[in-house]
């Protein structure tokens, strides 16, 4: 339908003489060529730098390039088979699953609560908003460095926790709860990962607050008023009217947060590193170390292809649905 739009001007404004119309038609066609030409460099760049490079990485992941010297001989699924049998990669998958779950939950819940509270026509709203938003302007590296200090096993926060009977060593704990044997690893929640979740939540909650706040502000007051007149309780108004209306925002936040957490690297690299027994390791860190420190290029490429796949599962349906919704 859109291409039609571009050509409509001619029809609409064709009241002047025929002469003029033919005169204008030529530069217009010219303009459409110009438009495509302007887009072309970007398309070429994206084709090469995104799709071409992904293809090349995929090719490397099927090769034998696991040393300093490139070796593109075909290795089949060897690199993938290696990873899925690898303790470290299994641990990475576990860590990513729990990090993603907890991180998204924390961001959603805290974001929704704070947005609702901020929407209560309170005093100093902009001050509170600024406090909740500012960490987003920081780098994950800064967040990692700072939280490393805040949560250091021998520092203040942990001394307070000690009063409640929590050992300060939780920060580097290798405990997995509940720790069911699964493959080579213990499956469960790695305690040390909680520290990373807290730091990540600190940084990203502002995003969900902003999203929910925008959503709440977009809900017309008449809706609530009407419900109130019908005698609905405030709680009911929220669960039956507001929450469903916020659903698309919730989905957006989940998708955005999921793609951040599935590819997370800098926060963990700066804050905890892979951790003892790889309790805080994630594919991003593993890929970095194995590729650029150990020269296992094919293994590293295989890790990234798995990462890409996990992100694509979320993103492609989302992109397609929002494309339909958008136009």
């Amino acid at each position: 339908m859109e291409p039609v739009k571009a050509s409509t001007p001619l029809e609409h404004h064709s009241k002047p003489s025929m002469m003029k119309e033919t005169k204008r038609k030529r530069p217009l066609i010219n303009d459409r060529v110009k438009a495509i030409l302007c887009l072309l460099p970007s398309i070429i760049l994206i084709t090469i730098f995104v799709y071409g490079f992904i293809g090349w990485t995929g090719y490397v992941s099927f090769s034998n390039w696991n040393s300093l010297i490139p070796d593109f001989s075909f290795a089949g699924l060897k690199n993938y088979a290696y990873l899925f049998a690898d303790f470290r990669f299994q641990a990475d998958l576990r860590n990513t699953v729990f990090f993603t779950l907890f991180f998204i939950m924390a961001v959603l819940v805290a974001g929704l609560i704070l947005a609702i509270l901020l929407d209560q026509k309170i005093r100093a709203e902009s001050l509170f908003r600024n406090i909740f938003f500012f960490p987003m302007a920081l780098s994950f590296v800064v967040t990692g460095v700072v939280w490393q200090w805040v949560l250091n096993p021998s520092t203040g926060v942990n001394l307070i926790l000690k009063e409640f009977g929590i050992s300060p060593m939780w920060y580097t704990s290798v405990t997995i709860i509940p720790g069911i044997e699964w493959g080579k690893i213990e499956f469960g929640v790695p305690v040390a990962m909680i520290a990373v979740v807290i730091a990540a939540m600190w940084q990203m909650t502002g995003f969900s607050v902003a999203m929910y706040l925008a959503g709440l502000r977009g809900i017309p007051d008449e809706l609530r008023e009407a419900a109130r007149i019908d005698g609905a309780s405030e709680f009911k108004i929220f669960t039956k009217i507001i929450f469903p209306l916020l659903m698309p925002i919730t989905v957006s936040v989940i998708i955005i947060m999921a793609h951040i957490s599935l590819k997370i690297f800098d926060l963990i690299y700066a804050m905890t590193g892979p951790g003892a027994n790889f309790v805080t390791d994630v594919p991003g860190v593993y890929m970095f170390e194995t590729t650029f420190r150990g020269n296992y290029y094919a293994n590293g490429a295989a890790i990234t292809m798995i990462m890409l796949l996990s992100v694509a599962i979320f993103i492609i349906p989302y992109l397609i649905s929002s494309r339909k919704g958008g136009s």
Partner: peptide, 28 residues
Amino acid sequence: AAEGFLTKVNQAVNIFVTQQKVDQFVDS
């Protein structure tokens, strides 16, 4: 030994320090 071997030994040692499973360590 070459860098690649060392990378893997470092991983195995990291796991061993926590798990202390001798057989698994020797296997890796």
